[in-house]
């Protein structure tokens, strides 16, 4: 059953994320994706994540689909205006991409290419609405197209039950067509449950983000580069005191997944560098049989 069908029928999904290469060599990308064969429903392909220049996610999606993987194409509003976004989406559909994750995109000031002009002609809700139009066979100006798309569109959220603005924004994303939502990493499962209670009335499929921590270096990376994500001290202590931090990281991630299985519509695994432990995490969490 493909990702779209699973979302439509309310099944538990497992997604994960791969980063496009910083160059043309796709060897490592394919090796990483191969580690995930049979473990996950779809691979997210990021779009110049954190504004760091990498291969176009559309090019990567094509490579991965050729290898038999289903992808969720990240589409951000940072680098393309409404003309380019729509035409890329039409191209993506013709290349076989069926799932889109619509995002505003990190500001270029956070990235590696100084002096970049930010675009943001649309925001993520406007992009979601444009995708709805394409799905109806119309462009953003409501003109009929010669063949439309049938994308499964999704969006992202920081699952903070106390951030009223983000909750309102999530509601609007859903009303603009986000049929699945992938969240930022979850460490505090009680807080996540509170978040789910607050958004349970929304007609969408919420997939909890899991960012496994295999070392104190990962803790430092999250604290320095990913603002808003708070790692509980207990988690840091367990990694710190472990003789095998990688094994402890697998256990921690699996424990989190088990606690989330009944509340979330799935999990989205996004380790920082490699997927070498992703299968082990899913097995430990009972998500693979």
């Amino acid at each position: 059953m493909d990702f779209k069908r699973k979302i439509e029928t309310g099944k538990l999904v497992v997604t994960t994320e791969v980063a496009p290469p910083r160059g043309t060599d796709t060897t490592l990308l394919i090796e990483e994706a191969d580690l995930l064969s049979g473990c996950v429903d779809a691979l997210n392909v990021s779009d110049n994540q954190r504004s760091i220049m990498r291969m176009s996610p559309l090019g990567v999606a094509h490579v991965l689909q050729e290898q038999g993987h289903e992808v969720i194409l990240h589409t951000t509003c940072r680098d393309r205006n409404r003309l380019a976004l729509q035409s890329d989406l039409l191209g993506a559909w013709n290349l076989g991409v069926r799932n889109i994750l619509a995002m505003t995109g990190d500001h270029p000031l956070l990235g590696d290419t100084m002096g970049t002009k930010p675009v943001y002609d649309l925001d993520s809700t406007q992009l979601l609405q444009a995708i709805q139009n394409l799905n109806r066979g119309h462009d953003i100006m409501n003109r009929r197209l010669d063949g439309g798309t049938g994308f499964m569109a999704g969006a992202v959220v920081r699952p903070d039950p106390n951030d009223k603005m983000q909750l309102l924004r999530l509601k609007r994303k859903v009303s603009c067509g986000a049929r699945f939502i992938q969240t930022q990493p979850v460490y505090n499962t009680e807080e996540f449950k509170e978040f789910i209670e607050k958004v349970s009335h929304l007609n969408t499929h919420i997939i909890a983000g899991i960012l496994p921590i295999f070392s104190l270096k990962t803790v430092k990376f999250i604290n320095d580069k990913l603002p808003g994500i708070i790692i509980p001290q207990e988690v840091v202590e367990r990694i710190k005191n472990s003789t095998d931090p990688a094994e402890e990281g697998i256990e921690l991630a699996a424990e989190t997944i088990k606690k989330l299985q009944d509340v979330a519509g799935g999990v989205h695994i996004m380790p920082i560098i490699t997927h070498q432990h992703t299968e082990a995490i899913l097995k430990r969490a009972g998500m693979l049989h």
Partner: peptide, 11 residues
């Protein structure tokens, strides 16, 4: 900085 008209970004 992103000129957003439909609420804040996740940042």
């Amino acid at each position: 900085p992103k000129g957003l008209q439909n609420g804040p970004c996740g940042g």
